[in-house]
Simulated scan of single mutants.
Amino acid sequence: MRSIEDIIAQEKDVQYQQRNKELFSYYTLTLINQDQAARRLRRRLKLTLWFMLPALIGLLLSPATGWLMTSFEAFSGVSFVRVLVMAVASYALAGVCVLMLKRTHVL
Score class of each variant (00 low, 15 high):
L53H: 00
Q10P: 03
V88D: 05
Y91V: 10
I8V: 11
T65Q: 15
Y26D: 05
L59N: 10
W67H: 14
L107F: 14
E73V: 03
L60Q: 10
M100N: 09
E11R: 03
S90A: 14
M69E: 15
G95F: 00
P54Y: 03
Y26I: 02
R2L: 13
K102A: 11
Q15M: 12
R39S: 07
E22H: 09
Q15H: 14
Q34T: 02
I7S: 09
R19I: 11
I32P: 01
M1E: 13
G77L: 15
A38K: 05
M52E: 04
L107D: 15
L99F: 02
T28V: 03
R2V: 13
A37C: 05
A94M: 09
A37P: 05
K12M: 11
R40H: 07
A94H: 06
Q36H: 07
Y91A: 09
I57P: 00
F75A: 12
T28H: 01
T70Q: 15
L101D: 00
A94E: 07
A89R: 08
K102P: 03
S76C: 11
S90Q: 04
F51R: 00
F72H: 00
L29K: 03
S25M: 13
A64K: 15
R40D: 02
Y26E: 01
K21P: 02
M86V: 15
D13F: 12
R44V: 01
A9L: 10
S25C: 08
Q36E: 09
E73Q: 13
M52V: 14
L93M: 10
L41I: 11
F80D: 02
L41R: 04
R19N: 12
I57T: 04
Y16K: 05
M100I: 14
T70A: 15
F72K: 04
L41E: 04
R19W: 08
R39T: 12
M1P: 07
F80M: 07
A94V: 09
G77P: 06
V81F: 14
L60T: 11
V78G: 05
C97R: 14
E5I: 04
I32G: 02
L45C: 06
L99S: 07
S76T: 13
N20H: 06
V78M: 13
E11H: 10
R44Q: 01
I32K: 01
L101T: 08
M1Q: 11
A87K: 07
G95N: 06
L84C: 07
F72E: 03
R39C: 06
Y16E: 09
T70C: 13
F80E: 02
G95K: 02
L68G: 03
R82E: 09
L45H: 06
K21I: 08
L31M: 01
I7V: 14
Q17T: 10
D35V: 02
L31I: 05
R2H: 12
A89E: 07
L29A: 01
V81N: 09
T104N: 10
M69R: 12
K102Y: 08
D35K: 01
N33T: 02
L101C: 08
A9T: 07
L68V: 08
Q18S: 10
F75K: 10
L29T: 03
Q18R: 13
R103F: 03
L99M: 08
Y26C: 00
V106M: 12
V88C: 06
L99H: 03
